[in-house]
Simulated scan of single mutants.
Amino acid sequence: MKQEFREGITIYSQIVSNIENAILEGELKPEERLSSLRESAVEMEVNINTIMRAYNLLEEEGILRKKRGLGFFVSEDALKIIQKKRREAFYQNTVPELSKTLERLGINVDDLIEALKKEGTS
């Protein structure tokens, strides 16, 4: 099935993000084998080098492990690594922007917390 890619973001970055999301959502589990480079390239209709770049980046970050002759597998620590990475990005990028938005709209932190509680977030 062809994957739809967004403009303005490199394809390999989107593939990395999609794999990370699949791990966060439990669709990919520790020690699970990913599709081969060729299979993924055909499925997503992208160049095999693009897939290789994404898989290699995830391997460098410790999210994937390469088993010689067998392919790429989700590492045992993948979930923790992704959560840490995303948490840092959240605090670095989202929180400052959220803070500015709250100030612009005159929303205090207590109101935000109450709204989050209503959404089921603790």
Rank of each mutant, 00 (worst) to 15 (best):
Q14D: 04
I63R: 02
L58M: 03
E4C: 11
N108S: 13
Q83S: 12
K66C: 07
M44Q: 04
N93Y: 07
S75I: 04
L102K: 02
V46Y: 03
E31K: 14
V109W: 07
E32D: 08
N49S: 08
L28D: 03
L102Y: 00
L34F: 04
E61Y: 13
V42R: 03
E4D: 06
L34Q: 03
Q83P: 12
E114W: 10
I19K: 04
E20A: 08
N49Y: 05
E25A: 14
D111Y: 10
L57M: 05
T121K: 11
I51Q: 01
K85M: 10
L28H: 06
I15K: 00
A41R: 04
E97R: 11
E76S: 10
R68Q: 06
I63G: 03
E39R: 01
R104W: 07
I82V: 15
V74Q: 02
S40C: 05
E119C: 15
E27C: 11
K66S: 04
Y91A: 12
A115R: 06
F90T: 11
K117N: 13
V16C: 12
S40L: 01
G120E: 14
F5A: 01
A22P: 05
E59L: 06
R6D: 11
N47M: 02
R104K: 14
L28R: 09
Q83G: 12
F5E: 00
S99F: 14
M52D: 00
L70P: 12
M52V: 15
K29A: 08
G120V: 14
K80H: 11
V42S: 03
G8R: 06
I48Q: 02
K2H: 07
G71N: 07
E32A: 08
